[in-house]
Each structure stands twice: as C-alpha cells, then as structure tokens.
C-alpha cells in the first residue's frame, strides 16, 4: 500500500491543544496498552502458576505482594478503571451524544476523577484489616 507522506497520520499530537478530552483520549490508549501487556501477562502468570502447583503459585504471590508488585498492582487497577470509565464514555459518544465542548470536557474530567476515586477505594478496602 502506498502512502502519501505529505498527508499526516494519526499521532500528530504536537498540533493539538491539550485539554481533558484529549488527555482522556490518549490515556485510553496508554492504559489499554498497559493492561494488554502487563495486565494480561499477570493474568496468564497467575493461571499458569495456579495450574503448576503450590510452589509456583507461592512464587507468584510473593512477587505481586512485594513493594514493586503492589506498586504495579495499584497502577494496573488505576489503568483498569481509567480504561473502563473512558470506554463507557466512548459508548455514549458512539451514539452521537456528548460532543458539545463543555459537556465533553466535563465527562472527560469525570472519568479521570472516577478512576482515581475507584482506585483509592479499592486499595483502601484491600488494606483495611478484616
């Protein structure tokens, strides 16, 4: 396939003025890529370790409960919520709603706030001793 190099392709980030809607757009992609690699890899590791036996499973648990593992876990859970809320926003936009600039910016900001709150609530719930 021949491409005309004078016609720009998608990632011409430098020519757009940043706003919450633009931030959420690129966050959707970044969190999706993170979940698809680190998140999916962790899922495969967890299942394979469970199938392998108690020792392999314990090795997995030791890694994900280490300080680095928990930091990655917090990041993954935030990415999950951000991608989730941003994805729900995309469904609304798919039916043609929410394109008015103020409303669009409001819901873009709302996905960022909701993802941070959901991540904080999840980890507060996990850390609180039962």
């Amino acid at each position: 396939m021949h491409r005309n190099p004078s016609r720009p392709l998608s990632p011409h980030l430098s020519v757009w003025r940043w706003g919450p809607h633009m931030l959420v757009s690129i966050l959707h992609r970044i969190t999706g890529a993170g979940l698809a690699t680190v998140g999916a890899g962790t899922l495969v590791w967890w299942l394979a370790a469970a199938a392998d036996g108690p020792e392999a499973y314990q090795a997995f648990v030791d890694c994900v409960t280490s300080p680095l593992g928990i930091a990655i876990g917090v990041g993954l859970s935030w990415a999950f919520f951000q991608h989730l809320f941003s994805g729900l926003r995309h469904f609304v936009m798919d039916v043609g709603a929410g394109y008015e600039i103020e409303r669009n910016k409001f819901w873009a900001t709302a996905t960022i706030a909701a993802a941070i709150v959901a991540t904080a609530l999840l980890w507060a719930w996990l850390v609180v001793p039962t």
Partner: peptide, 20 residues
C-alpha cells in the same frame, strides 16, 4: 479479553507503525 486486546493493540500498531 485477549480478543479485545488484540483488536486494540492492532489499532495502535496501525496508527504508529508507518512502514508498511
């Protein structure tokens, strides 16, 4: 999940990998 992430990563590749 893997079907969804395959479709999603494909779009990223389509956008950023310019050499055919």
């Amino acid at each position: 999940t893997f079907w969804h992430l395959k479709v999603g990563l494909q779009v990223i590749i389509d956008d950023y990998v310019h050499d055919e």
